[in-house]
Structures are given as C-alpha cells and as structure tokens.
Design a protein around this nucleic acid. Structure first.
Length: 105
DNA sequence: TTAGTGACTGTAG
DNA sequence: GCTACAGCCACTA
C-alpha cells in the first residue's frame, strides 16, 4: 500500500519539533513535488477536520507569513499556539524565521 | 467524467 | 522590487 501524498504530508509535519517552523514548499519538496505546495496546505486543512494530530500551526509560507491562520477558528489561534512554543510572531510573520526554520533533512 | 478549486512557489517580464 | 502566470495533486460538485 503506497502512502498517499496526504499521509506523507502528515508524517513530515509531525516531525517538526515544538518551537520550530517549516514551509509548505520544503514539505512538498521533501515529499517529492516541490510545486505541489498548495496541496500541502490543503492536506493540513483536511487533517484538522479529520481530528488528525498535525501541528499545522508550525507550517507557514516561504516568507514566514502565517497564511494558514485563516483556516483556524480564530485569527489569533495559530499565533497563540506558536507563541506558547516560544515562537515570536510580529505582524503575522515569524520573527527570526530563518533561525527557527526546520528542515526534514 | 469533467471542471473547478485550494493554507504555495519559482520563473519571467 | 513588484505583478502575472503556470504547475503541482487530490477532492468535491
């Protein structure tokens, strides 16, 4: 049984340690389709609806911008979760993004 | 079955 | 430096 694109996304995102962040592009590239970054976000959106534990709040776009927050119930839910893990957010962006960036390799 | 859509990214103008 | 467009895969109507 081959793992679906979905499952690979879940597994990769779950590898992100607390206090670190990753980008859709990196995850997509790790899976094998760098240009399918949109699917990563979409997969995370679905995962939340399916009660899958995936730290989607640790995934942002390549600028460190919290674009995914729009899919959370409240606009500051994503930010609060990140801040509780020690990630500083300024104006919807990750502070020291390059330092906090984590890669699966 | 086909068409449309989406939490993005890289390249070109 | 900014804007526009194409490409990626899976799901829903």
């Amino acid at each position: 049984m081959q793992k679906s694109f979905f499952q690979k996304v879940y597994e990769t995102v779950r590898l992100i340690p607390a206090g670190k962040v990753c980008t859709y592009g990196i995850i997509a590239a790790h899976i094998g389709s760098p240009q399918a970054a949109r699917m990563v976000g979409w997969a995370l959106n679905k995962s939340a609806l399916e009660n899958e534990f995936v730290p989607a709040h640790r995934v942002v776009n390549r600028n460190g911008l919290l674009t995914g927050k729009i899919h959370f119930a409240n606009n500051n839910t994503m930010q609060e979760m990140l801040e509780s893990e020690g990630v500083a957010i300024i104006d919807n962006k990750i502070r020291d993004f390059e330092i906090l960036l984590w890669k699966p390799y």
